[in-house]
Design a protein around this nucleic acid. Sequence first.
DNA 1: ACCTGAACACCGTTCAAGT
DNA 2: ACCTGAACACCGTTCAAGT
Lengths: 213, 213
Amino acid sequence: MAAARSVRRAAPAARKPTYHHGDLRRALTQAAIALIAESGPEAFTLREAARKVGVDHAAAYRHFADKRALLVAVAEDGFVTLADRMQRALAGVAPDLPEARLQRLSGAYVRFALAHPSQFQVMLGPRLNEDGRFPSLEAAIAQPFGLVRDEMARAVATGAFAPADPRELAVGLWTLAHGYATLVLSRRIVTRSQKKALDYFAAQAARMLAGLR
Amino acid sequence: MAAARSVRRAAPAARKPTYHHGDLRRALTQAAIALIAESGPEAFTLREAARKVGVDHAAAYRHFADKRALLVAVAEDGFVTLADRMQRALAGVAPDLPEARLQRLSGAYVRFALAHPSQFQVMLGPRLNEDGRFPSLEAAIAQPFGLVRDEMARAVATGAFAPADPRELAVGLWTLAHGYATLVLSRRIVTRSQKKALDYFAAQAARMLAGLR
DNA sequence: ACCTGAACACCGTTCAAGT
DNA sequence: ACCTGAACACCGTTCAAGT
């Protein structure tokens, strides 16, 4: 809170009364991501994001219907990053090693959650889209999930895994990764280090994947 | 919000100026549980709980250090109920059928989450105890987890499952149940009915447990 | 010991008014 | 079209004062 105030005072002369922003929507989203990373989603305030950008808080309503719409923008940004991380995690792992690839995908999921705990909470924590506004959110989450499903489909098709619905198998692995991430973040599972937490998850995932052969 | 106001007006004459409560702490906790069940944890307000009980909102601070302390009381109540449900789920299942018993335990966990989504969110959603206040919360969660761990230990001891650390196995099943519950509650996993959701989880749990033999 | 009443510093949201 | 300024109805928290 004191930190928030100092941000306000940080650039007293630099902030000329140039009340125009090229892309205020984007600026507010980035400010929200930064503030949430600092203090968590609970403490996040629309007014503080506006302050950080140097704009009247009412100006935000020209770009977002309400506070939740701004949080949705934060979540969508997170899903793009997550999909990117998962995709990159596959680099250099041969296509005919489905278990290794699924290990990488689910590991990247957990790693993202631990690296960006606050943003992850916004993405998958509260029921952001419970009323069905924001269909773009559903689209954003479909991409990382699709990576897992495709891999499962290949594993079943090549006979590496026993015959089963790939979608169902993907949900199972996703569920394990998601449950693990949330339990670590809420300190229900405590490990000595972040690396230990990832190793521990890898063992759990290995056990599950071995059961699918 | 309109509903909240009508509650206030519901008993205008019945509420005599008898400003004394036998157990205001308990009354506030119960009011909080009811309000959270109605409108979700995000919308919950300390002031509204006080209103519902018919007391000045400042009176709450005589019994709870702050709003979070009240939410902790809500969570603890939930863990007691959860442990009870899990225990009851074991009734009539022979001790020498560990997979069936673990199915019951994890199924009861998911069933509780779906039956009491808002309270479940308070119990395991935000980082209620991230600063280590409220050690009683840790104690409350240890009991339901212990049920799963004990069952895993017996399964390994009797040779039903392959040799492994029972605690690690318990974490795995808990993780699956927890991930599934949260993904259903946040509508990432959508099923036609509540029963379908439970059946679907049972299949996932069966797959995992089969892998432990 | 327990509760009230008033106050403080904040919110999210709305809306007329400015440029 | 985009933003400001002021206002509204709310919070969580504190504290003197009442009984």
